[in-house]
Design a protein around this nucleic acid. Sequence first.
DNA 1: CATTGGCACTCCCCGAAGTGGAGTGCCAGA
DNA 2: TCTGGCACTCCACTTCGGGGAGTGCCAATG
Lengths: 341, 341
Amino acid sequence: MQEERRLAVLRAIVEDYVATDEPVGSKALVERHHLNVSPATIRNDMAALEDEGYLTQPHTSAGRVPTDKGYRLFVDRLSTVKPTTAAERRAISSFLDGAVDLDDVIHRSVRVLAQLTRQVAVVQYPTLSRSTVRHVEVVALTPTRLLLVLILSTGRVEQRHVELEAELGEADLAALRSRVNLAATGEMIADAAAALDALARAADGGPEPASATRLVVETLVEAMSDHRSDERVVVGGTANLARFGDSFDTSIRPLLEALEEQVVLLKLLGEATSGGAVTVRIGAEGPYEELAATSVVATGYGPDDALAALGIVGPTRMDYPGTMAAVRAVARYVSRILDES
Amino acid sequence: MQEERRLAVLRAIVEDYVATDEPVGSKALVERHHLNVSPATIRNDMAALEDEGYLTQPHTSAGRVPTDKGYRLFVDRLSTVKPTTAAERRAISSFLDGAVDLDDVIHRSVRVLAQLTRQVAVVQYPTLSRSTVRHVEVVALTPTRLLLVLILSTGRVEQRHVELEAELGEADLAALRSRVNLAATGEMIADAAAALDALARAADGGPEPASATRLVVETLVEAMSDHRSDERVVVGGTANLARFGDSFDTSIRPLLEALEEQVVLLKLLGEATSGGAVTVRIGAEGPYEELAATSVVATGYGPDDALAALGIVGPTRMDYPGTMAAVRAVARYVSRILDES
DNA sequence: CATTGGCACTCCCCGAAGTGGAGTGCCAGA
DNA sequence: TCTGGCACTCCACTTCGGGGAGTGCCAATG
C-alpha cells in the first residue's frame, strides 16, 4: 500500500530530523530505516507529502523538513506512545519525594520536568477557585492590627493584614476567629466567600464589634477572589535554551520574552486543564506569532487534572513522544503527592 | 598633569565602549570628548594604560577595550555616582506600592530591577536566621494530624504537617498552642528554637501528651533551622540576555546555567550583605571562570542591609554608575516596605 | 620633556568568485 | 508502480584581494 508507506516515510523523516537537526534526504532515509525501496521511490513519496503540506525544503535541492502540519500528523497518528522508563520514574520520585510544602513540590516539579525533557519547564500554581478552605487563622499583632492567614486544601497559604478602627479584646477575637472558621472551613472558595459575606451582614447585631468583622471578612473575600495570584507560574530549565544554538533571534529571544510574561505562559498552558490528556500545541497553531517556532506540551494535574496545568515549551523540532511521556508522568506524580498531603 | 589625563582617557574609553560596544580608537576619542590634545598624545596614554593592564586591544591595529582591571578602576575611582532620576523613583514606587505580601514584594522587585537596569535581576528571600517569630499556629486537620504554620517577622510563612501517635483533645491542643507561642513569639529564630527545645524537655511531666509536644517542637525547630529554604532566590529579566546578541556561547549559555543554580546565585549575591554599600564584582574576580565575562552588582536590604541580598548580573561591559544607582534605589525602597509592614 | 604631525605597517572586515557535493526532478524502462 | 540514470540546482565553504581604521614609532617643536 503506497499510502501506508508514505506515512512511514513521514514518520521516519520526523524522527531523523529530530535526531540530527538536518534536512533529511532520500538516500540517508532508506539507509537508516530499512525501507525496502529505492531512493527514487522515496523521492516520489516525499514530493507527494510536500504537495500535501507535510514537508518543506529549506531550499531547492536540499533534504526535507517537517512542517507544523507534518508534526501535527506525526503527533496525532504516527507516534507510538513511549512508556516512561524505569530510570525516569526513579528520577521523578527521588526528586519529588523529599518535598516539604507546596512551594517545594512546585519548584521540584519544574526541575525534574526540565531535566527529563531538556526543555524549558513551566508549572502553574494550583488555582484558587478549585480549592477548599482548610483553616482561617486570625492573630492579633497589636490590639488594632490583625494578621489573617488563609490556608487552603492545596497547601497554599495567603496572608493579609487588617488595620482595625478600634481595639479588639481577647474574647471578641476568639469569637470572631471561631465564627469565621465555622463559616468557611471545608467550603470551596466560592462558597466560603458567600458564607463569609452572609456572616458579615448578620454580624451587625452580633457580639463582637461589627466593623472588625466587616473588615476581616472583606479582606478574606478579597484574598479569595484574588485571581491575580492565580497567575503564578514557575519556570525552570531556561538553560536548555542554550541547545538551540543557532536561530537566536527567531527562537530564543521571543521565547525568553514570553517566559517573563506570566499571562502569556498561562494562556499557553491554559488549554491544557481538561480531559486528562496531554495537549500539544505546535508552532503557529497558537495565538502568538512570535512563537511560531515553538511548541507547547502540557497537561493538567490535581484532582480531575483540573487543578492547574504543567508542561514544557520548546522548539517545534522536538522529541514529542518522549516529551509527552515525561509531562504525563510528572503530572501524575504531582497529582498523587498533592492528593496525599 | 599627565597622570590625571590618563585617568580621564580611561574613563572616556569605558564610557564610549559601554555606549557603542566597539573598540574605541584615539581619533574618535578626541572628537567625542573635548580633550584638548592630539590623537597621537592619546595614543601614548593608551599605550601606557595598556602596559599597566587597564586596556587591551582585540587585535593589533584595533581600538582599545577596557580590561576587568580597567573597569575596576573606573568603578572605584572614576565613576561619578549617578543620582536616581525622578522617573526611576516613580517607576520603583508605582511598581512596589501595590504589593500585598512578601512574595509579591520580592517578585515585583525583580521586575523593576530588571526593567530599570535592563539586566538579569536577582532577589534573595529574607534569610530565616535574621527573622523573629511573629506567630505559630497549630491546627488540627484530623484528630491525629496537625498543621503547623510558622509566621515570621519578615512576612515569610512556613508550614509543616505532623502525624501524631495518639489523638489530641481540643483542650490539649489549645494548651499546646499557647505554650508554643509563649515560648517562641517575638524571639529571634535561634532563640525561639532554643526555647522550644527547653519546652519539649520540660513537657514530659506537663499537661498535654508529651509525645505530641515533642513532635511539634521537633518539626518547628527543624523548619526554623532549615537553611535550605534560605536558598530561595527569584530571577527575572532573563529576556534582557537577548541584548547580548553575539557571544552566545561565551556569555549567555554559562549565565543561563548559573541562573538555574540557586547555590551559585546565592554565592554571587552572598558577599553583598554587609556594610550597606553596593558591591561590584567584575568578571574573573569571582570564583566561577565560566562567568569571566559577567559582572555582579549587588547590595543588601532590610534592617542593617543584612536581611538578604539583591542585585543584577550582566556583562562586564555595562553601565556601572547607572546600574549601581538603580540597585541601591530598589534596595532602599524594599527595605522601607518591609520595615513598614 | 610632553606634545604633535607624519608615515609606514598591521590586521580585520567584507564582498566577489570559484568549487565540491548533496539532493532533487524527471524520464524511460522493467 | 517501482527503479536506475542523469542533468540540474543551490548551498556551504574556501580563497582572494581591496579598503580602511587604527596603531607604533620617529623626528620636530614649544
